[in-house]
């Protein structure tokens, strides 16, 4: 029986991607959600590689894995009031 390895790889990657994107949506901690988004984008990049489009894969890594999650985390951290778990943010006396 000939095994279609590409199909299997595609399904595994798709599973990772779906799990990642679901986690992006349901995660309560926004910073973690952004990092799951990074994983999702990397998996999409690997799927591009599976389609033999290396250039798109590398650009995907360069832009979507390297820059976009970082910018999103920046956005989250610069706008939300509380990002750290510990309570003591009040002025010391």
């Amino acid at each position: 029986m000939a095994v279609d390895w590409e199909l299997i790889a595609f399904f595994i990657l798709s599973a990772f991607e779906i799990i990642g994107s679901v986690l992006v949506v349901i995660n309560k901690r926004l910073v973690r959600a952004a990092f799951w988004l990074a994983m999702t984008l990397v998996t999409i990049g690997v799927i591009y590689l599976l389609f033999l489009s290396e250039f798109v894969f590398l650009i995907q890594i360069l832009v979507y894995a390297g820059a976009v999650p970082v910018l999103m985390v920046f956005g989250i951290m610069l706008t939300r009031r509380k990002i750290m778990d510990e309570p003591g943010q009040e002025a010391p006396e």
């Binding site: 951290m77 610069l78 009031r81 509380k82 990002i83 943010q89 002025a91 010391p92």
Partner: peptide, 8 residues
Amino acid sequence: MPEFWINM
């Protein structure tokens, strides 16, 4: 980022 105190 909120204002916070840093202990140096």
